[in-house]
């Protein structure tokens, strides 16, 4: 009996750390899921509300069981959402392209081949983000007005480019710093010129970072409201401007607003989903750890 009992005890003590590990990881799993659900809940609630009738959307306590309807989406399209989406797409895509094209060489000159006084230059870039946008609004407005560029998508492209550029330079710089010098030097020894180094060595290594930077710039440009509401009118209004138009002081609007918000969030979601793989690696490698 004793001989039998001893290994049994032994094996149970031997199992304990493994069981504890399993328990531990199960707890962490639960925590991760709870945190995830808490983060996603407002979005899920927004999507759910978009399928409700206004009456159900505004009820207190909230309605959980309801007959889904596409009425609100029909109303959103009724208000002609397309021009706003197109304006947003143009402003975001072009500004992101410009940012990536300009920020990558700038970051190169501040990391792998640092120019003289590169710390000052780096600080100068980020210092432009220290002043709140509202402080610069009046001069920007007057300048844009005098140039005859009010209510013009290209104004927004330009503004979003300058808004995102400092951030992109900093991000790209930290990604470029991750490129091992030895690899670059080995390339040079093998006779690789600048263009070849960039194409064959640097770009493949920093491409996740590039994707992360581009996506963040895209999201910032897509969501931007303050400059858009002040500098656009009927022609160049972007999606956030379209969204707030549903807020009314007379009558119920929550379900329609949620439907519009769901539609407007879709492009960003799709962009994030497409860049997902790169993004995870990009976000865990550079500045935005």
């Amino acid at each position: 009996m004793t001989t039998l009992a001893t290994p049994a005890v032994k094996s149970s003590t031997a199992l304990k750390p493994a069981a504890r590990r399993r328990m531990g990881s199960a707890i962490w799993g639960v925590v991760a899921w709870v945190a995830g659900i808490i983060f996603v809940f407002p979005v899920i609630w927004m999507v759910l509300t978009s399928f409700k009738q206004e009456q159900d959307a505004a009820s207190n306590p909230p309605t959980w069981v309801f007959t889904p309807t596409f009425d609100q989406y029909a109303q959103v399209f009724d208000r002609n959402i397309m021009p706003f989406l197109l304006n947003s797409l143009m402003a975001s895509v072009f500004s992101t392209l410009l940012v990536v094209i300009l920020a990558t060489p700038a970051a190169y000159a501040l990391s792998l081949r640092p120019v003289a006084k590169w710390t000052d230059a780096l600080f100068f870039f980020i210092s432009t983000k220290m002043m709140p946008a509202v402080a610069a609004l009046l001069p920007v407005y007057l300048l844009v007005k005098n140039l005859g560029m009010l209510d013009n998508v290209w104004t927004m492209v330009l503004l979003y480019t300058s808004m995102n550029l400092p951030l992109a330079v900093w991000m790209m710089r930290s990604f470029l710093l991750e490129v091992p010098r030895e690899v670059l030097e080995a390339g040079e020894v093998d006779g690789a010129g600048l263009v070849t180094s960039i194409r064959k060595i640097i770009l493949p290594i920093v491409s996740p970072g590039l994707a992360a930077t581009a996506l963040i710039c895209f999201i910032f440009a897509w969501n931007e409201f303050f400059l858009a509401v002040n500098l656009t009118a009927t022609n160049a209004g972007t999606a956030p401007i379209f969204l707030v138009g549903f807020i009314s002081s007379e009558g119920l609007f929550l379900a329609r607003l949620c439907a519009a918000a769901t539609l407007v969030s879709l492009p960003v979601l799709i962009a994030g989903w497409v860049a997902q793989n790169k993004l995870v690696r990009g976000l865990s490698m550079g500045a935005v750890k």
């Binding site: 021009p83 197109l86 143009m90 560029m149 998508v153 009118a233």
Partner: peptide, 13 residues
């Protein structure tokens, strides 16, 4: 392509 479509829209009237 879109900018082509909304070309008319991007000039201030």
């Amino acid at each position: 392509v879109l900018s082509g479509c909304s070309g008319a829209g991007s000039t201030s009237g």
